[in-house]
Simulated assay, not measured.
Amino acid sequence: MSQNPTEFDIQHLDDELVLEYLQSDQEFFSRHPQLLTTLQLQDNRRGTISLVERQQQLLRDKVNLLEEEITQLLTVANQNDRLLTIFNDLYLNLIACDSFPVFCDYLQETTKRLLELSDVRLVLHHGNDALDHPILIDTIPAVQFANRFGKENYYFGRLTAAEQSLLFPNEETGSSCLVRLQHDGEDIGFIAFFAKDVEHFYPGIDTLLLEQFRHLVAKLLVTKFLTAN
């Protein structure tokens, strides 16, 4: 006794079943090449297009995205090269300094002119009457900014109004970078940078150059000036 074939109910299909089938049958479009040009898809920019046109558009979008990423990487690489040159020159100048005022002058000049930031402060936890410079602050207790660092050696972002008034009383809106200075495991203070751009300093900034910088500055301060006075 013959039986009529059961008719397939298309309502039982869903996106997941269609996707699973097409992924499992890699030759589907090879067997039905006409679908590549006859299928019509909706595109927000171009209206109705074929599957081939849609694939071409996706490839163009992907190429454009890759080109943007390459451009961004090249920009970052150029910026890093420039910063490396600036920091290398700064290191040589700091090492050659024989006086505290000249030492601070180089920090200030590099910050304002070469790094194009607005201001810098050198905060030392143990004051010394023999050391004096406009960027030096030796009246802030060590616990004042301890919460900004926590267990980290850096803080990037905005400060409270009270914190900013202690470090940068003449500045208004902006962002800051605090760099912890340590010698032989002991905190001796920190360097604070200020930028007028509120987004200039943000969490997650690469600290490779700053890590070398903070170690060198701390060592030079202790060996050249703090222990000598």
Rank of each mutant, 00 (worst) to 15 (best):
N128L: 04
E20P: 00
A218F: 01
L83T: 09
R31L: 09
K112V: 09
Y202I: 03
R82I: 08
F100N: 03
I140P: 07
A218K: 06
H32C: 03
L83A: 12
Q40M: 04
E7A: 15
K62M: 05
L122F: 07
Y21P: 06
E152A: 15
C177L: 10
Q182K: 14
N153C: 06
N80W: 01
E171F: 00
E69D: 12
E186Y: 03
L58I: 12
D9Y: 10
V222L: 06
L65H: 11
D43S: 14
R113M: 00
N229V: 04
P141D: 02
V18H: 05
G185N: 01
S30L: 02
N93V: 03
L59I: 15
A162Q: 08
L90P: 11
K151R: 14
G189I: 05
R31M: 04
P134L: 13
T75G: 13
H183T: 08
T6Q: 13
G127R: 13
E109D: 14
L35Q: 06
E53P: 00
T6G: 07
H183P: 03
V143D: 14
V76D: 13
P134H: 11
R54L: 08
L221K: 01
Q182V: 07
D187G: 15
D81F: 02
F168H: 10
N88A: 10
Y202G: 05
T173G: 07
I140T: 13
Q34N: 05
F100D: 08
D25N: 04
Q55W: 06
T48N: 03
Y21D: 03
L136P: 11
R46K: 15
G127T: 05
R158N: 10
P101Q: 04
G204S: 08
A146T: 07
E69T: 14
Q212D: 07
F29N: 00
K151Q: 12
F28H: 08
R82Y: 10
Y202N: 12
D15T: 15
D119F: 03
P134T: 12
E152V: 02
L35C: 09
C104E: 05
T227A: 13
L122P: 14
T110V: 04
T207C: 03
D61E: 13
Q56D: 09
F201S: 12
I205A: 13
L221M: 08
D9N: 15
I95R: 13
F194L: 09
R121E: 06
S50W: 00
T37R: 04
V102K: 08
D89T: 15
A146G: 05
R60Y: 05
A195N: 15
S24N: 15
Q42N: 07
G150W: 01
I188S: 11
L124H: 09
R60A: 14
K219E: 12
E27G: 03
D119H: 07
T139I: 05
F29C: 01
V217S: 10
D25G: 00
F149H: 12
Q108H: 09
H32Y: 11
Y154V: 01
T207R: 00
T223D: 15
R45Q: 11
Q144V: 04
D138M: 12
D89F: 12
P169D: 05
P101A: 06
I49P: 00
L90C: 13
D98R: 11
I70P: 05
T111P: 00
D9A: 10
N4A: 15
K62I: 02
I140R: 02
T227V: 07
T223Y: 04
G157I: 10
L114E: 03
